[in-house]
Amino acid sequence: MRRTFLAFAALLTLGFSALAQPPILPDPKLTPGDTFPVGRADVCVPGYSKKVRNVPIALKREALRRYGVPLGDRRDYEIDHLIPLALGGSNSIRNLWPQSRKTSPWNAGKKDFLEDRLHKLVCSGKVDLAEAQKAISTNWIDAYRKYIGQGGRTPKGEGKAGVPSAAAASQGSLVWVNTRSGAYWKPGSSFYGKTKQGQYMSEQEARAKGFHPAHGTGE
């Protein structure tokens, strides 16, 4: 009886430790990355990603299952395209993995920032599409360090005038205010830095200006 109890306790501990440390990199066997047969001329057309975003719920659940993420924890994860759609990635299960929104410093928000940067570099002709696809699918954290910098700082002068740099925001010190709706988002949330209109500021400043946390929590 005692042995059974100990075995159960050990299994429970293993389960909790697995949940406590979500992967910050995908398993290359489960998620090697996959692309559509497209080129730079395709992915740089405005609206391209929206046209090709097709991930059925069944496929999202399969990605969670493969990584052992309980369905109840799905809100803590983004089903991420390892090679983003904007860089020609496909919706195949081989390109999907559950990426934590909450791990620090490497999380879904940070990868989204890298994806935006790489897309701009590809479309401006500074980086080859195949090179960007390879870099982000091999190790997105190394790619982040290469194309953005250690700790996520943007090169001097690249930030928008009058706005704290997105990289500073990605450090977790600032919230993203959707100036149209009046709601603000915390780092790692779905719409952090994503809405058409908005700006970064401290949470204290956002509250002082009358903005409110999205969905009550900003997450």
Binding site: V45, Y48, V52, N54, P56, S92, R94, N95
Partner: peptide, 20 residues
């Protein structure tokens, strides 16, 4: 062959209309 990466629809000019 691979759900999510098997269908391609392009218009007469070759512009992507749908991929999935």
């Amino acid at each position: 062959a691979d759900p999510g990466a098997s269908i391609s629809l392009r218009d007469a000019q070759g512009t992507v209309e749908y991929l999935g």
